[in-house]
């Protein structure tokens, strides 16, 4: 009885330490913590269907949802430093992709009209941006950190989600992956 108990106890203890070690290593590898702006990489969303956003953009024009090969939906804010960091990448990316039937949509969170307009002018963003001041859409998409991007294929499926500032190469790869997904059933 005593032997049995001590064997079980030592197994539990060893298992406990192994779990701790594994998760400590895991944590060092991927910065999966929400709120940290260095968060990068892709993560799966449970809510994976594109919900169209019927609102007018910041200049009062209606957003069109014609058939696109891919939609890049970006949640950002003018006050968020990593968003500033990636603004030029996005402005350039839009120019590269607009002729290839890829739509960019920006959703500005908890922001005011003037700072958004200044931001758009400063970084030369040409795509549709609209405001989400009560976080309705952000919550609908399960947004955890800013900026957070969703890559949506032409069947309305969210193919990828990207947290944190993006660079050109990753942006290109993710859009291409999204378009590739269009052919899949």
């Amino acid at each position: 009885m005593k032997l049995f108990l001590s064997i079980i106890l030592s197994f539990i203890t060893i298992g406990f330490f192994i779990i701790l070690i594994i998760s400590t290593i895991d944590r060092e590898g991927s910065q999966g913590r929400p709120g940290l702006n260095e968060v990068s990489g892709t993560a799966e969303v449970k809510f994976e269907v594109f919900n169209k956003i019927y609102e007018n953009n910041i200049y009062g024009n209606e957003i069109s949802y014609d058939e696109y090969d891919a939609i890049v939906l970006d949640f950002w804010a003018s006050w968020c430093p990593p968003c500033i960091q990636e603004a030029e990448t996005l402005a350039e990316g839009y120019k590269d992709w607009k002729d290839k039937n890829v739509k960019f949509i920006g959703v500005a969170l908890w922001d005011n009209e003037n700072s958004i307009k200044n931001f758009i002018e400063k970084y030369g963003l040409q795509y549709d941006v609209f405001m989400d001041n009560d976080g309705k859409y952000a919550i609908e998409y399960g947004v955890k950190a800013l900026p957070e991007k969703f890559f949506i294929n032409n069947k309305g499926k969210i193919v990828n989600k990207y947290i944190g500032p993006i660079n050109e190469v990753e942006l290109k790869n993710l859009i291409e992956e999204t378009i590739k997904n269009n052919e899949l059933p």
Partner: peptide, 28 residues
Amino acid sequence: RGGPVVSVHSFAASTLGYIFLGFMVFSA
């Protein structure tokens, strides 16, 4: 000081998790 959990009290968080984990294993 660097454990793998999320907490509201992370004032002393550091990257020294390994060392303290090691010391804990050692003391056990």
